[in-house]
């Protein structure tokens, strides 16, 4: 190859890019590591913004359209920033039978947010997951990464309101 390809520079001097770079380096900057790298970006920054997608694309030499295609194919990746706190309601079969729809409706009515939306103050995002494998404790909710089983409306309110008051 005649043209030399220089390593692209990180979008900012944010330290978190070092973590992203480490993931790419560990995978030998292989195109196959696209999903791994996007995981790292998402875990580090909370979401995938355009500069991040461009940077990953350039670093791994994956076409922009492929990066966007992958980022929008998988549920776990999000292109929008999330709220400070996330509340993930499981919508697997067991949870569905045992009351998730009512919980979702409750959240929508009380806090005015639907699946994938964030409260106006940016505090709480409501997300759903297709079965988190906690069927025996249905309905299950993951509050900021901590799973809770047999969640009632009261429990949910308690947590969400604590967040909103914080």
């Amino acid at each position: 190859m005649i043209a030399t390809i220089t390593k692209p520079e990180a979008p900012s001097d944010d330290k978190r890019w070092k973590i992203v770079q480490a993931t790419m380096r560990r995978n030998g900057y292989s195109r196959n590591a696209l999903i791994e790298t996007l995981h790292t970006v998402q875990n580090s920054f909370g979401y995938l913004d355009e500069p991040a997608l461009r940077y990953v694309a350039a670093s791994l030499r994956v076409p922009l359209s492929n990066v966007y295609g992958v980022a929008t194919f998988y549920h776990l990746f999000t292109l929008k920033p999330q709220g400070e706190h996330t509340c993930v309601l499981c919508t697997g079969t067991a949870c569905y039978i045992k009351g998730t729809p009512e919980l979702l409706q409750h959240v929508e009515e009380r806090y005015g947010i639907r699946d994938g939306e964030t409260t106006e103050d940016g505090k709480v995002s409501l997300l759903t997951a297709r079965c988190i494998g906690a069927c025996s404790m249905a309905p299950a909710v993951v509050f900021d990464g901590e799973m809770e089983g047999e969640v009632t409306q009261e429990q949910l309110d308690e947590q969400v309101e604590a967040w909103m008051a914080s």
């Binding site: 196959n32 194919f73 998988y74 776990l76 990746f77 297709r130």
Partner: peptide, 18 residues
């Protein structure tokens, strides 16, 4: 990364390949 279809063999392969 959250895609049920990746349980399908050929989709799973595509996903491992990034």
């Amino acid at each position: 990364a959250g895609a049920f279809v990746c349980g399908e063999e050929t989709a799973l392969i595509a996903s491992i390949e990034g």
